[in-house]
Design a protein around this nucleic acid. Structure first.
Lengths: 137, 137
DNA sequence: TCGAGTACTTTATCTGTTACAGTACTCAAC
DNA sequence: GTTGAGTACTGTAACAGATAAAGTACTCGA
């Protein structure tokens, strides 16, 4: 786990990633459950671990997302049969959910292209003849 | 100008790009004015044209952004000296604005990486060894 | 003079995020 | 035996950015 105290590179994560990820939460949750059924807190951990701890989604954000996805029929939920210990609510993606997930990934790719293009406007003019190249990595 | 009625490829643009660009508006405006002074409506057109008409930011969104940028001292404004015809309010980026712009581009690059990583969770396991290619164009 | 285009602005509403608060169980440590 | 950390789920209130809608005002060609 990265220390959040000294490293400049880590500044980035929670500080602004949170704001800029707005609107993507539902798609991210669909990405996780499209891999297989999972329960609320496990989805939280999956997201955290997939980003190496860089992005820790807020619980309230996540549960608000579950509510939307359920309301729209994109996931189904059921209680696990843990007879002792904390109850777990499992989420399963529906066919509608898979379709929306695919659409949203497409939307993201378009959006990513748009933002890349627009932010490129601010780069100092290049000397070459071709379209603005993206800096590799 | 693209007709918005028949083309499927155009569906993408206004429909959802708008929502997903949330939080990036100020950075996009900074990108435009970091190229040189510009006035409100011209910035609107620059953004529209840079995306080939795919993304037409809403005026209200844009003017709300100007207000924020002014309040934070990231741009300065002055009225042009158009003696006849419609008045134009010009915006000029400040040093603080340039610094914030650079930071925000960095933030975008990190965010882009995070979302790419997270949405990748939902892809079926790949057989090859390389990263997923981006569809060209 | 009528409509389309240019140009700027404000107000009210909507939505996603999140701080905060709360409930409830388990398990290891003291 | 209770304290604290971790797991797990939920609701409420407040905030911020986006935007529909409406308005003001000028220009120019038909």
């Amino acid at each position: 786990m990265p220390e959040n105290t000294d490293s400049d590179t880590f500044l980035a994560s929670d500080a602004f990633a949170a704001d800029l990820l707005r609107g993507h939460t539902d798609t991210i949750v669909l990405a996780v459950v499209s891999q297989g059924e999972s329960y609320g807190f496990e989805i939280f951990k999956t997201i955290r671990d997939a980003t190496g701890g860089a992005y820790e989604i807020k619980e309230a954000t996540l549960y608000a997302s579950y509510r939307r996805l359920l309301k729209d029929g994109l996931v189904e939920a059921y209680w696990g049969d843990e007879t002792q210990g904390g109850r777990r609510k499992y989420y399963r993606i529906t066919d509608a959910g898979r379709a929306v997930y695919r659409d949203n990934v497409g939307a993201w790719e378009i959006t990513r292209g748009l933002i890349d293009t627009l932010l490129d406007l601010g780069r100092p003019a290049r000397t070459g003849t071709t379209r603005p190249g993206r800096p590799q990595q």
